[in-house]
Simulated scan of single mutants.
Amino acid sequence: MRATQSLTILCFIVTSFLGSQMARAQGCVAIRHFSSCVGTTLENNLLGAGDIQIGSNYRYFKSFRHFRGTEEEPDRVANETEVINHSHSWDFFLTYGVTDRLYASITIPTVINTRSSLYEHGRDERHTTFSRGLADIRVGMGYWVFDPVKHMNGNLALGLGLKLPTGSYNASDIFYNVGPEGSPQVRPVDQSIQPGDGGFGITVDFQFYQKIAERFFAYGGGFYLINPRETNGTRTFRETLSPILQNEAIMAVPDQFSLRAGVSHAFGANFSGSLGARYEGVPVKDLIGGNKGFRRPGNVLSIDPGIAFMKNNFSLNLNVPFAVRRERPQSVTDKETEEMTGEPRNGDAAFADYLINVGISYRFGSKKVKVDPELMDEFKN
Score class of each variant (00 low, 15 high):
residue 190 D to L: 14
residue 190 D to Y: 07
residue 191 Q to A: 11
residue 193 I to S: 02
residue 194 Q to G: 03
residue 194 Q to C: 07
residue 194 Q to Y: 03
residue 196 G to Q: 09
residue 196 G to Y: 04
residue 196 G to H: 06
residue 197 D to R: 08
residue 197 D to K: 11
residue 199 G to D: 09
residue 202 I to Y: 04
residue 203 T to A: 04
residue 204 V to Y: 06
residue 205 D to H: 05
residue 205 D to S: 11
residue 205 D to C: 00
residue 208 F to G: 05
residue 208 F to N: 04
residue 211 K to V: 09
residue 213 A to K: 13
residue 213 A to W: 13
residue 215 R to I: 01
residue 216 F to R: 10
residue 218 A to F: 14
residue 219 Y to S: 01
residue 220 G to E: 08
residue 220 G to H: 05
residue 220 G to P: 09
residue 221 G to D: 01
residue 221 G to A: 02
residue 222 G to E: 01
residue 223 F to V: 03
residue 224 Y to F: 07
residue 227 N to E: 13
residue 230 E to G: 04
residue 230 E to M: 04
residue 231 T to M: 08
residue 234 T to I: 04
residue 237 F to L: 08
residue 237 F to P: 00
residue 238 R to T: 06
residue 239 E to I: 02
residue 244 I to A: 11
residue 245 L to A: 10
residue 246 Q to V: 11
residue 249 A to L: 04
residue 249 A to Q: 07
residue 250 I to R: 04
residue 250 I to P: 10
residue 250 I to W: 02
residue 252 A to K: 11
residue 252 A to I: 01
residue 253 V to K: 04
residue 254 P to Y: 01
residue 254 P to F: 03
residue 255 D to R: 10
residue 257 F to A: 01
residue 258 S to M: 10
residue 259 L to G: 05
residue 260 R to G: 06
residue 261 A to R: 07
residue 263 V to Q: 02
residue 264 S to E: 10
residue 267 F to D: 07
residue 267 F to H: 12
residue 269 A to I: 11
residue 269 A to V: 12
residue 273 G to E: 14
residue 278 R to I: 09
residue 278 R to C: 10
residue 278 R to G: 14
residue 278 R to N: 14
residue 280 E to H: 08
residue 281 G to M: 09
residue 282 V to F: 03
residue 283 P to F: 06
residue 283 P to L: 12
residue 283 P to K: 11
residue 284 V to T: 15
residue 285 K to W: 09
residue 286 D to H: 07
residue 286 D to G: 06
residue 289 G to D: 08
residue 290 G to F: 08
residue 291 N to P: 09
residue 293 G to Y: 01
residue 293 G to Q: 06
residue 293 G to I: 06
residue 293 G to K: 00
